[in-house]
Design a protein around this nucleic acid. Structure first.
Lengths: 203, 203
DNA sequence: GGCTTTCTATACCGCTTAGTACATAAGACT
DNA sequence: AGTCTTATGTACTAAGCGGTATAGAAAGCC
C-alpha cells in the first residue's frame, strides 16, 4: 500500500505522538527552566526513552527551541492579536488582560517561559539566553512601532515618550510574570492590571 | 600573648580575608545565580580552596545565604531608606531612582539577585527559592504598610487601591531588573523610571 | 520469505557536580 | 622544647549530567 496520511512510510513506525511529547516537554521546561529540566525529567514526562528523544528532536537544545516555538504559538498568541486593536489603550488592555488570563489559568504552570529562561544562565545556556532575549526584544519593538503609530494618529499625546511607555508595558508584563511565579494570588494580579490600566495616558 | 583583636586565637590562623572572599562569592552568585555558580567558579573567584570554603562557610547553600545577606545589606540599603521619605511620591521616587542607580552602576553586575535566584529552580534550589520569595514578599508588605499610612494621611486619594499600587511599584522594579539583565541601555531604564513616576497618582 | 529501514531499550561513555579524607603546615599555650 | 588546635592542599568519592553505541523489534517493499 502507499502511504497517504503518515509522512514516513518505511521502517518501524513511531510508538508515541510527537506533538503530545513536545507538549509534555514544554510543561517541564516551563516549570523548571532550560537547565533545571534534566533529560531524566523530560523523558519521564514525555513517556519515551532517551534515544527516542534524540532521534525525534535532535538534542536538548533543539527540543527546547521547538517547545518554545509551541509556547509562543499557543500561549503567547494574544500578544500578536492585541497589537491589532484599534486604539493604544485597547492594545495595552488586551496585553494586560491576556497576560492575566494566562497567569491565572489554573491548570497551566505559572510565570513566563521567556523570562524564566533568560535569567538563569549556566555556561552552556548562553545561546538559549541570547535567543530568548532576542525574541523578547522583537516583541518590544513591535509594540514600540504600534505606539508610535498611535501617537501619529493622535491616539497618544504629542509629548508622550513612546520608548518609556513601551518599557512601562514590558515592565508590567514582566513584573506580573515574576509575581505570578512567586505565588501571587489572582486578586493581586487583577489589582496590578487594573491599577496599571488606570494609569495609561491615552483615551 | 592574649588574643585581643582576632576572634579565634588558637590554631593556625586563616590566610584569607573572610569578608573579601564573601564579597567575591556574592559577585559570582549575582552573575550566575545559585545553581549556575559552581564550586569551581566560587573558589577561583574567592582565591581559596574547596576545604577552606567549607570550613569557613559551611556549604554552598550557607555561603549563598551569607552572600545574600551581604547583598541586601549593601546593595538594597536604599529600599529601607526610601520608605522613610515624607510622602508616598517621594517613597516611590527614591525606590525607582535607587534601583536605577544600582542597575546603571557600571562596575556592578546587572539584574537583581533576588529575582534572578527566585526563578531558576533546579530540584535542590527549592529552599533557596522559597527564601528569596519570602524576602521579597516581606519588602512588598513593608511598602504596602507605608502606602496605607500615606492614604490615611491624605497623601494618596481616598479611593486609591493600595494593594494595586504596591503591586505596581513591585512590577516596575522587577521589570527594570529583567530589562537591565537583558541588556537594556541606561536611556531605556531612565525612560522607564520617568514614565512610571509620571503616572503616580499622589502629589 | 528475505531485505531494508526505522524505532525502541539496555547499558554504557566521559564529564562535571557538591562534598570530604587525609596528611601536612602554622600559629598559640604550657 | 612539646602539644594542641586549626587551616591548607591534594586527591578522592558518589551521584548526576548530556549524549550515544549496540542489539533487537516492527513495519514496508521486493
Amino acid at each position: 500500500m502507499e502511504c497517504l496520511l503518515t509522512k514516513a512510510c518505511k521502517g518501524r513506525p513511531r510508538e508515541f505522538d510527537v506533538d503530545q511529547a513536545l507538549a509534555a516537554a514544554l510543561r517541564v521546561f516551563w516549570i523548571k527552566g532550560y537547565e533545571g529540566a534534566s533529560l531524566t525529567d523530560l523523558t519521564q514526562a514525555m513517556g519515551i526513552t532517551r534515544p527516542s528523544l534524540y532521534a525525534a528532536f535532535g538534542n536538548k537544545e533543539a527540543l527546547f527551541r521547538k517547545a518554545l516555538d509551541l509556547y509562543e504559538r499557543e500561549k503567547l498568541a494574544y500578544v500578536g492579536e492585541a497589537l491589532n486593536a484599534p486604539t493604544s489603550r485597547q492594545v495595552v488592555e488586551r496585553l494586560f488582560r491576556g497576560a492575566l488570563a494566562a497567569q491565572t489559568d489554573g491548570c497551566e504552570p505559572k510565570g513566563c517561559m521567556r523570562i524564566i529562561g533568560s535569567l538563569s544562565c549556566g555556561p552552556e545556556a548562553e545561546s538559549i539566553r541570547a535567543d530568548l532575549m532576542a525574541r523578547r526584544q522583537s516583541s518590544q519593538q513591535a509594540l514600540c512601532a504600534r505606539l508610535e503609530q498611535a501617537k501619529s494618529e493622535g491616539d497618544l499625546p504629542n509629548d508622550a515618550d513612546v520608548n518609556g511607555l513601551c518599557a512601562f508595558v514590558g515592565a508590567i508584563l514582566q513584573g506580573m510574570a515574576v509575581q505570578a511565579g512567586s505565588g501571587a494570588s489572582r486578586q493581586q494580579l487583577e489589582a496590578l492590571v487594573e491599577t496599571s490600566l488606570g494609569m495609561w495616558p491615552g483615551r
